[in-house]
Design a protein around this nucleic acid. Sequence first.
DNA 1: AATTAGGCATTTTTT
DNA 2: ATGCCTAATT
Length: 770
Amino acid sequence: MPADPLAGLNDRQREAVEAIDGPLLIVAGPGSGKTRVITHRIAYLIGRAGVSPYRIAALTFTNKAAREMQSRLFGTSQDDSAAPLLGWRLRSSGLAVGTFHSFCARLLRTDGEVMGLDRNFAIYDAADQTAAIKRAMAEAGVDFKAFSPGAVLSIISKAKSELVGVEGFGLRKENYLDEIAHRVYEQYEQMLAQSSALDFDDLLFKTHTLLNKFPRVAEKYQDRYVHFMIDEFQDTNVAQYAIARSIAKRHNNLVVVGDPDQSIYSWRNARVGNILSFQQDFPTAKVITLDESYRSTSTILDAATKVISPNSQRIERSLWTNNGVGSPIVVREEYNEEDEAQYVVREVYRLSRAEGFALGDIAVMYRVNAQSRALEEACRRFGVAYQIVGGIKFYQRREIKDVAAYLRLVSNPHDDVALDRVINVPTRGIGQRTVDNLTRAARDRGSSMYAAIESLSEPGGGPFSLRPAQAQALTRFRELIGRLNEESRTLDLVELIDAVLEQTGYRRHIEESAETKERGEERLDNVQEFRGSAREFTHLGIEEALTAFLEGVSLVSDVDSFEDQPDALTLITLHQSKGLEFPVVFMVGMEEGLLPHSRSMDTPEEIEEERRLCYVGVTRAQKRLYLLRAFRRGFWGGSGPSDPSRFLEDIPRKLIEGATPSEAPEKPAAQTVAPPARPARRRPATNGGGEARPAVERARRRVRGRREAEPAAPAAAYATGDKVRHPAFGDGIVMSCTPSAGDFQLTVAFKEGHGVKRLLLSFAPLEKLG
DNA sequence: AATTAGGCATTTTTT
DNA sequence: ATGCCTAATT
């Protein structure tokens, strides 16, 4: 029997559940019962307001969040701890609970044909995208030593996320890098179309296009979705918001839930602005703030509030809790990374021995993955069980991607990225030269690579000439894929995978090619696991099964597969920790350069995001919070001293354990020693504290100033992307600017055939433009 | 085709 | 230090 959708809610939550008419913004602080509100609201709509589940969509960002929501709504087969809000039978009632991307994928598969989309389009994940971009760069004649594929990809991805297509991008490009990106973009789009493939951004972009260009499709969805909800709204990008507005247009029941203070994915093109401007876009929107935290102690909550409040881009509010004061926050400095890790692990051990915490209650959070190494070592040394979240990604393993690529080829032989990946794995005598020829031939005929191979056997021998051995090898590969495709019609998915493994020789290949026996077995095990996960699709027709299975492979990552692990300490990045909570949280690396990260302190906006990241970390903690830093941290083999994170200074001393004046931050004193000009690390204006450290610290810093050997070089004044002019080479774009022996080395890409030059700042007569 | 040596960069990564 | 990629070597 379904539970009462209003039971156990506080006034605000109840209000949010009952406000079923018109646009609604729910600003939900950490631990304020956000998911609860969404699920109860759905139950309320169905159970009390008589809305058909078919007319409701609730979109999340992660599969994990979607799963969580589903299990609260429908219950799960194993876990019946909480009564489901709805019955099992509603599972297949048409209620759309899923990620934005899977929602769009479904929409496009259902209705994309009117815009010429292949029903079985492939979905390119990040790795496929990179591979495709590299191919596109090669096609466009762009040297990817001078331009990193990653940088180009991120420009294109940003454009797509802002609904800027190739043409639009052409109109707004503003520097040389954009020029390059434009050429690649054009090529890349052509390749995707050729391959019947969509990348992650396309799932959104094309959905938006479909809804805008095809009114009948738009009407269908506008009619259907009387209620449209979005979770984690602070992380939506332009495209997602536009899609939501488009679909919600008719019934105007758009509900967005989020917390601008937890927006930490702007570098993935998320727009904090969406949540901040929602009220302008929907002037009639009701706004409900959930500010009671059920998660953290008041000490932790106070610290979090103090950390976040300097930000300017936020909706002012104050969180509160009835949870009591709890333990003070522990702030510590250790000598180096190893000591820091050792302290953490010792303390973890103590907490689990003497204070009744389970290892699974404890998480250690860090800014960059590299920080996990020292922690892992310490765990191993002390025999503490640990798990790294998102460390090894199953679907990103080579053997899995290879087998998936074969399946993709069987499903759609025109998938060039898949073909490129496996055409010579295992080796079939098809070398790079042959692949290049093939690529060129495909481009010339405006077809996929597979189709280009097919044309070999046409009268006239096809449009490109190859030595017989190569032509034969290609033809045999084509026959292999063709045969598998034929056979697939009589097989189920698992049988097809077996056929692929045998007929392509891939099984033997991984057994033989692995560096060691164990590694070979491990890979085979992975493939077996992959095969096992295909079992749930065997009841479907092969074509449908393939599409669904491959979509899962692309769209489902396994970041969250850690949750059901046995009792172990969790090591996790701050980014990944969002949405989680732990009784005990250690944040390590609370240093300038790490948090905020040195690559994210150039603009106030970046600093604000780092601050939010810190806030997210702090608010993961329920009962205990430890903030650690190392005085000396190893970077790239070397090691340098570090300053405490500016965020530490925002935490009031009274919340910190054993705080004494010499340990706790004090109000900024007059700057007796002016810090030397630091060309490499521009301190943004938001660093309000300046030299807010006690004398001992300051002394240390002065010594350090010398050790860092930051010279009185000309101010670095150049950043990547700056336009410069050189008397001999003309105009160019700064590709990079790195400190180098008392100077700065600039890599500059010049126009008009002068190419890329490396220049020393102090010698090069450069002039900054614009 | 497979192995090896040298060069290079190295934040975060829901989908 | 380390891993990844390319180029050179066998």
